[in-house]
């Protein structure tokens, strides 16, 4: 028995959300009286022994350059071999686009019930039940998994990392890799930006900002705070900002520690994508904006007057001239 966590990597580095998934896997292992192991595919430059600090005992590696790009079929086949090799009965992913491509396939291959979008540890008091978001963040469901093997895809920023001590053993895994049926023609990565799904702080703008030329108010604050930038649906629809920044019911659902909404009224569809944020700040000149009902802090005021003062105050706080 073991709990196996899939570590997602990009450009040779383990993704931040995978450390959260690793710590979660270690806790699941503790709850079920077993050990947590990890697997990473592709060439990784990080010191994998440090996964011990997240409670991982062994990191299995398949260091093949062919695995630097994810192919859902190839990855599923390798993971199913790793599940067999480690006798894993719980498999943990961080619920990102990689996991969404692989976990459903693995669920079928292993006949393992999948909970996608988990936000809490499993409840093992009566069977095996995992809490997940449903209705695009407007509610939660407790999903009972009835199969012997279980797969949990944990939403990013849902679990607080528990520091552990130790050094993880590194175990090269001789997997049969197989051939990808999908050919990757090109990869175009946005570099230098904080990925939205993993960001601790998100600064977001809506139609209240009146035009893309005013986005400096959003990006300057985001840069100061090391935050990702986001936008409301109308803003993406009229191409003021790229589609991948759209948060809400039909865009990305996020759960940062801090969400700052500037000039966004807070329609129910937008709230659905952001209401799991720990602290919500709303800046809007309309005191009747529905977003204030969902906010923790707010300023009723004109963003064009308020934002420069906020940016100055943050600069002062951060000691930036």
């Amino acid at each position: 028995m073991s709990v196996l966590v899939f570590l997602d990597q990009a450009d040779g580095h383990i993704k931040k959300s995978s450390f959260e998934a690793a710590s979660y896997a270690a806790k699941v292992a503790e709850l079920t009286g077993t050990t947590a192991e990890a697997i990473v595919l592709g060439i990784v430059n990080d010191d994998l022994a440090t996964l011990g600090n997240y409670g991982i005992k062994t990191v299995h590696t398949v260091a093949e350059a062919a695995l630097n790009n994810m192919d859902a079929q190839v990855f599923t086949n390798i993971l199913s071999q790793a599940v067999e090799n480690t006798s894993a009965d719980v498999i943990v992913f961080s619920n990102n686009t990689t996991a969404k491509a692989i976990a459903p396939r693995l669920s079928v291959k292993l006949k393992a019930g999948l909970v996608s979008g988990a936000v809490a540890l499993p409840d093992t008091s009566n069977g095996f039940t995992v809490k997940k978001t449903v209705f695009s963040g407007k509610a939660f469901a407790h999903i009972a998994v009835s199969t012997a093997k279980k797969i949990i895809a944990l939403n990013p920023n849902s679990y607080t990392i528990v520091p552990a001590s130790g050094s993880a053993a590194i175990a090269p895994f001789a997997a049969t890799i197989g051939t990808a049926k999908v050919e990757v023609v090109s990869v175009n990565k946005v570099t230098g930006e904080v990925p939205l799904s993993e960001a601790d702080i998100v600064v977001s703008g809506g139609r209240g900002l009146k035009g893309p030329e005013n986005w400096g108010l959003v990006t300057e604050l985001a840069d100061l705070l090391g935050a990702a930038t986001a936008c409301s649906r109308p803003v993406a629809d009229i191409h003021w900002r790229p589609h991948h920044e759209h948060v809400g019911q039909t865009g990305l659902a996020i759960a940062p520690n801090l969400y700052i909404a500037i000039g966004i009224s807070g329609a129910i569809q937008h709230l659905a994508g952001v209401n799991r944020s720990k602290v919500i700040v709303v800046i809007n000149k309309d005191p009747e904006a529905p977003f204030f009902k969902a906010a923790d802090y707010g300023i009723v005021g004109d963003a064009f007057e308020v934002m420069p003062k906020i940016i100055d105050a943050v600069k002062k706080l951060k000691g930036v001239a």
């Binding site: 669920s107 006949k111 393992a112 019930g113 999948l114 909970v115 039940t129 809490k131 449903v134 407007k138 509610a139 939660f140 469901a141 407790h142 999903i143 009972a144 998994v145 009835s146 199969t147 209401n275 799991r276 009902k293 969902a294 906010a295 923790d296």
Partner: peptide
């Protein structure tokens, strides 16, 4: 492979 045991609404702000 799975079933819904129960639903829950998020706590009010």
């Amino acid at each position: 492979l799975t079933s819904i045991a129960s639903f829950e609404l998020p706590p009010a702000k």
